[in-house]
Design a protein around this nucleic acid. Structure first.
Lengths: 206, 206, 206, 206
DNA sequence: AATGAATGAGCCTTCATTCAT
DNA sequence: TATGAATGAAGGCTCATTCAT
């Protein structure tokens, strides 16, 4: 949550303005994370941010606009985190494991992300869809490369990407957001990766 | 959506009352499915149901109560559908495939289910959690049985259950709720099952 | 202000409702008359009417809707008053005098009418225009009949109607709304009628 | 709109300041004319004028102050236009016709005048009243002179002045502001003057 | 003089819930 | 049971005005 926000109709021109905007976004992330979009109030957000109610509208046109900005922000940040965990020399399967690990670590740091992205389904459906479709495309791209490289079996594509994304999301929900924090992301990622790699059928090849 | 609803503080005594209650629940499912909990209004729901606003409180104590009743209803219905698809003589892997197929078919019939369960995260978090934990337990139980029977590899448990549940949910989202309806549930279930069974690693055993 | 109001999107079904609606309209006429549309507040109107704020929206969709209803109401009422003053056996000129007298008396009773109709120019321009165009048409009709009957000179029409309407309106503003009430409507109407009838040129026919 | 504005609490000292003030007034005339006082916003006015919001308060103490300045400005300008059309050797009736013609031409050039003066009734009632009372006094003075000169019949005064003013205003509304511009001011003024001069009664002296 | 940011009172509107019949 | 009306708290948003630079 420390990269600049873009694509906002009301870009602050002064430094002071940019600082205020950041305070607003941080406060909003906390508020939406705790209360959800509908139970959150602009007034409470500006209070958290330590500014007057009206100041909000210097930076956003509406509660929805703020929320959308936040969703884009978070969406980009997770993807960025995942990509940052990938090294060029990893095997395709290791890449998946690293990406999952990075995602879980990100979620542990930013627990609001689940509620915020989930609520986008209702508040900004297009952004919701975009988030998952983009993520799936990234995964699909990696799978196709894995197939091509021979690290993964042939024929992988979108469907497998969605399946893996679903696994990752639910694993994060269960073990990070709802978990007690005792299981560390790497261990989980490792276990899940084994499932992804070999499945659960009995292995008669032993 | 045609089984009786229970666990209601205000159980209608007459037949007419029961019919009214049903109309209310159907109207609510539609309304919540379309608009989400917060954008939905009691007034609109009663209008859909063809009754007066005030009548609502003869059947439910609050908007939340109605929503919770609906979530329980749906939660039970999906699980019931999944269970109904399982035959005693199926192999453990076939059971998973059948369960997924049943789930996808159910979702195709009741597209509201995604939005309603998803929104429970905000409106009735306990029910949300209960829904997924119960579902996961069911799957985990089957996996353990599969391990024991030798159909599946040993050591399967909760983590794998959550992973599989996540896959199923996201596959349903992508190919049923957002899909154009051209891919049929069985085909999808079959493909996904292959992933679950054998994973995506290159198979050198061939 | 004691005839039923029609053409309202939310027609009350009970007697109690109809009484409430009337109280609302009376309160609104007073409030708008005193403060004007923009300085008036729904909250103040409902207070005057002795009801809760929210009750307003049982009867009107918006502040604008209430205002428009009021404008239509008043517009009809003045025209009705004017028409009521006309007897079939009057000469065309006497008709004009009677109509003006009736208008002035109406304005004396309902001083809000000026501010309400005037403000319609900004709040509901279509209603504003409709009011004056309808009124002008009525007058024009009478003038044409007067021309035909030989009581008035030939060639009278819309332009003369607008001129006469303007006179009437401004005379009412000056001597009724701003007046101290010492000059009675009939006297004024008589004097104005003389102007209408014979103009102000020096009369060499004497 | 090109004479200096006076009676302003904050008279600019520099030339640049005077130019800014003029831009502000022109922008305000346009904005108030289009949207009316209450729907207009300082921010929109300063935008039109190409300056920053805060700069407004260098020139006016409040939105009301600006509006009042504008009303005075326009009020003076119309009267000035009317007076400018009068030649010393005209007959009293010709004077009225010339004045009306000038007024109509002015209104055609400055259509905002109607909305601005009309809205003064709500925003600055004193200015509204002053405008019409002053105008009426001017007319009354001319009528009295006309009576004295023998061009007009005796006994003319305030009442006739208001009546004539009302005619002029409504004729301008109908044929200039709402008109399609096809009828030229002079023709209208001529027709109206005939009404003023001889009235509408049947003329048996013919 | 000029500017962009900040302020906060105020108001319309919604709607879950309660009431009276 | 059913219904139409009534309630009032709550919240989003506007915008004139003030501040700091």
């Amino acid at each position: 949550m420390d990269k600049p926000v873009k694509a906002n109709p009301k870009t602050p021109r002064t430094d002071r303005g940019r600082r205020t905007l950041r305070k607003l976004l941080d406060a909003a992330a906390a508020e939406f994370g705790e209360k959800g979009f509908y139970e959150a109030s602009i007034s409470s957000i500006t209070q958290r941010a330590g500014m007057a109610l009206g100041s909000f509208y210097t930076y956003f046109d509406s509660k929805e606009a703020l929320f959308s900005a936040l969703v884009s922000d978070m969406s980009e940040n997770v993807m960025h985190a995942a990509r940052g965990a990938i090294a060029p020399d990893m095997s395709a399967l290791d890449v998946e494991q690293a990406a999952l690990g990075a995602f879980l670590r990100f979620a542990a740091e930013h627990r609001e992300i689940y509620r915020i992205i989930d609520e986008a389904e209702f508040v900004d459906p297009a952004a919701y869809r975009r988030h998952y479709e983009t993520t799936a495309q990234r995964i699909a791209g990696r799978l196709e490369r894995g197939s091509a490289d021979g690290d993964m079996r042939p024929g992988l594509g979108e469907l497998h990407a969605w399946a893996i994304m679903g696994m990752n999301v639910f694993i994060g929900l269960r073990y990070v957001v709802w978990g007690d924090g005792t299981i560390d992301p790497e261990t989980i990622a490792h276990e899940v990766n084994d499932l992804i790699a070999h499945g659960i059928a009995a292995r008669d090849d032993k």
